[in-house]
Simulated assay, not measured.
Amino acid sequence: MRKLNIADLPDGGTPATLAAIGTGWGPVVRGGISRYDAPGHRTHAESDRHTHDVPEIFTIVQGAGVLELDGARDTRFTAGDILIIEPGEDHHLVSDGDVPLVFTWMHLAPAS
């Protein structure tokens, strides 16, 4: 897992920069935006373990929380943070802010 901040990106986070974050992988193949209103909400509640075989990039738009990575909750995030989840890492976002958690998520294609 890597953690960046939008303010640290040289061009403010254009699609080209976001694609460069996942260097070695293909373009974004799917993604979306999610909102969770309740503090304590844990994403991917459908299972105890949630992994992918490609990277997933989260951009935190609003709110705050903690990243649960491979069972440990030790990485805090807040609006403006970018979380890059590597293939095979078990991951969940857990909301704990005073406002709803809003984030984008993107899956990258395998390298061609």
Rank of each mutant, 00 (worst) to 15 (best):
T43W: 03
I85H: 03
D70G: 00
P55R: 06
T23Q: 15
R73S: 04
D70N: 10
H91I: 09
R73A: 03
E56S: 07
H52G: 02
E68F: 00
G24W: 01
T43A: 10
I85C: 12
T104Y: 13
D53Y: 06
P39L: 04
R30H: 09
S95I: 10
T78H: 05
G88I: 12
I33Q: 15
V99M: 10
D90Q: 11
A111E: 06
G22R: 12
D37M: 09
E89G: 14
H52F: 03
T23R: 14
G24E: 08
A109L: 07
G63T: 08
T51M: 09
I60P: 03
A79D: 06
V94A: 04
P100L: 07
A111C: 04
D37R: 13
L83D: 06
G31F: 04
T23Y: 11
G80D: 06
D81N: 08
P87G: 06
I60R: 03
S47R: 15
G31C: 08
P87V: 06
T104V: 10
E89K: 15
P27V: 02
R42S: 12
G31N: 09
F58M: 07
H52W: 05
V29K: 09
T43C: 07
R30M: 13
H92T: 05
L93V: 09
G40C: 10
T78Y: 01
I84K: 12
G31L: 05
E46Y: 15
A72H: 03
V102P: 11
P39K: 10
V99C: 08
W105R: 01
H92V: 03
L108P: 02
S34K: 09
V102F: 11
I85G: 06
P39W: 07
A64V: 05
S34F: 05
I57G: 13
D96R: 13
H92D: 11
H50M: 13
G26P: 02
I21K: 11
H41Q: 11
D37G: 12
G65F: 04
V66S: 00
H92N: 11
D96L: 02
G22T: 14
H44L: 11
G97T: 07
S112M: 00
H50P: 10
G24L: 01
E89S: 15
T51Y: 02
T51A: 03
G65P: 07
I82G: 01
L67A: 14
G97C: 09
P110E: 10
E68H: 01
V66H: 00
P27K: 03
A45F: 06
D96Q: 11
D96T: 11
H44S: 14
L69N: 08
P27M: 07
D96A: 12
H41D: 11
D98M: 12
G24M: 04
D90A: 14
T78M: 00
R76H: 01
L83Q: 08
S95A: 15
D70I: 00
L93N: 06
I84F: 15
G26T: 01
H50I: 12
V61Y: 14
T43M: 07
I57F: 14
F77P: 01
G88M: 12
V94K: 05
R73W: 00
S112T: 00
H52R: 10
L101F: 09
G24T: 02
F77M: 02
I21F: 12
H91E: 08
D70Q: 00
G65W: 05
